[in-house]
């Protein structure tokens, strides 16, 4: 028997299953990053000394990464709009750009990390760097996860467009929500780790 409401919304809730699923998943993710931000707050409040964060880290590179992620968040919105309009070529273009954005973010991040390592700055150095590496590392893993999904939806996953367009559209929407979440987490991480 078919599972209902995988692509049409249930009339009384107005939602599809994947949409509820992704929102619940993101709620859990909010709690995960929320716990880590609280750890940051608690450790920093209890610390006797705290390094000047913006002197240790590279604000220009992080600003660049912020711009990259915001742009890729915009391109995935355009990708969704293209799917809704039935323009699959435009979809592939915008999804491709989103993927490039994610990859560029990781490359910049890798430069930042190797620069820190070269200076002998590692997680064990002090609690600020420990938090920096843990939080940005976990965020980068989320970016990687998003990239894998987006790559799939850009490549082999497109097949579903022909067999079940409604469901495919739903998938792009869900992937988009996740990608925005990854973006939002970064927008919190940036000031907290680099500026404050």
């Amino acid at each position: 028997m078919e599972i209902p409401y995988t692509s049409e919304p249930r009339p009384d809730t107005g939602l599809t299953n994947p949409k509820i699923g992704i929102w619940l998943f993101l709620a859990s993710e909010v709690m995960l990053f929320g716990s880590l931000f609280s750890a940051y707050a608690l450790l920093r409040m209890g610390a006797e000394t705290w390094p000047d964060q913006s002197a240790v880290l590279s604000v220009p590179l992080a600003t660049l990464n912020t711009v990259i992620l915001i742009v890729s968040s915009a391109t995935i919105v355009l990708a969704l709009a293209a799917v809704r309009a039935g323009r699959i070529d435009a979809y592939r273009r915008f999804m491709g750009l989103t993927i490039l954005g994610g990859a560029a973010f990781l490359v910049v991040k890798a430069f930042e990390y190797s620069d820190k390592f070269a200076q002998g700055l590692v997680p064990a150095t002090d609690n600020f760097l420990a938090l920096y590496f843990t939080l940005t590392g976990l965020h980068a893993l989320h970016v990687v996860g998003g990239l894998v999904v987006n790559l799939y939806l850009w490549g082999p996953g497109v097949r579903m467009w022909r067999t079940d367009p409604a469901r495919f559209t739903g998938r792009i929407e869900v992937a988009g929500l996740y990608w925005h979440f990854v973006d939002v987490v970064w927008i919190f991480l940036f000031p907290v780790l680099y500026l404050l």
């Binding site: 995960l32 716990s35 997680p123 064990a124 609690n127 420990a130 843990t134």
Partner: peptide, 20 residues
Amino acid sequence: PALQAAAILQGMDRLAGTSF
């Protein structure tokens, strides 16, 4: 997720030498 976060931090303490 709170335990997830805590386990990640304890893992860092044990494997990467941090002092969370």
